[in-house]
Design a protein around this nucleic acid. Sequence first.
DNA 1: TATATACTATACAGTTCTGTATACTTTATA
DNA 2: TATAAAGTATACAGAACTGTATAGTATATA
Lengths: 185, 185
Amino acid sequence: MSRLKDKILEVSTDLFQTRGINSTGVDTIVAVAGTTKMTLYKYFHTKEELILEVLKKSQSDFQTWLDKKLDSSSKKPADKIQLLFDYIEEWVTSPSFLGMGFIKASAEFPNEENPIHKLSSQQSREFRQYIAKLATEASIKDADSLALQLSLLFEGAVQAEQMKRGSGAIKYAKKAAKVLIDGAN
Amino acid sequence: MSRLKDKILEVSTDLFQTRGINSTGVDTIVAVAGTTKMTLYKYFHTKEELILEVLKKSQSDFQTWLDKKLDSSSKKPADKIQLLFDYIEEWVTSPSFLGMGFIKASAEFPNEENPIHKLSSQQSREFRQYIAKLATEASIKDADSLALQLSLLFEGAVQAEQMKRGSGAIKYAKKAAKVLIDGAN
DNA sequence: TATATACTATACAGTTCTGTATACTTTATA
DNA sequence: TATAAAGTATACAGAACTGTATAGTATATA
């Protein structure tokens, strides 16, 4: 992958999070990335394609990071689900955290037929299924039900953190998650 | 208040929810409302002012409806907090529900200095305080902590419902809320 | 009946946005 | 060293957007 393509993706991710997707023009993106529109449109045929790739990379980065953290933490499935919100807290409270792409994108593109909304919805579902896998491996009775509840806490906490940086909401999500996990057996 | 001002507010609320705020032009609004831009700008000096009034009215309608429901349901505070998510479910699963304005608006205007973001953030805080008041009246030990956790479930469930209409997420939020409320005493 | 008010209709200024066309420059490589 | 690929610089078409100017119509009321 090209150095400039990466730079465009990185700058777009940042600007979409801090200014909003529709409010960020490609002229701004190339100016900040230090390149030109011709180069941007060489790598991304349309702005929509750029948005979709930004979302894919963001979610992939998060999932990869989380998976690695959980994998190197413990081999016992029961521990892993308990540690889930500890790592989520670490991710969300990191200074570089600016929000979750799929949550903001789904709000900005509310039509369920829109490709950007569809991808956002898919990423939300995939993360829920990831939690469900953790719950299943931890031999939790109704794993899918717990996973959905935990995903609500996660998305709610991210929403709260996007609303007010440093809200501390994730601390309460963690407390609530522990109660729900412990009560699910 | 004028008939046309109401109509403009009503149409704007609907279009902002279904197409997004930035993606909805005033030309579209007046066309659907059956009026003209001159009339719109007579009642709302800028589009931002219109957005702010739409948010205020939406939240006021929700709060008024919820408060009336809870007030006419039971006089016992312990019952009211248990019924909270039943009424939230009724609201969210109603066919006319298209989303919560302050959640979508805060995503579309992510800058915390933006007046629209500020109002969204304020409304989120006020709703949390409303839950806290219910929890306090129900003599719950750490009412603020529970209220914050319940607000995460609420915002997460709304987010999920906005992502996929008819997701049923609110049912799981209700289940989780019951566990948290019962465990908070 | 005269007058203020509410509203319509429409054109338009000025900006911003996406996407492309065109001509030039730099760099890697065969 | 010749050639292809990558990137720059810039102008521009065409659309969409906010907000205003201007002139006219309908209606209520004094």
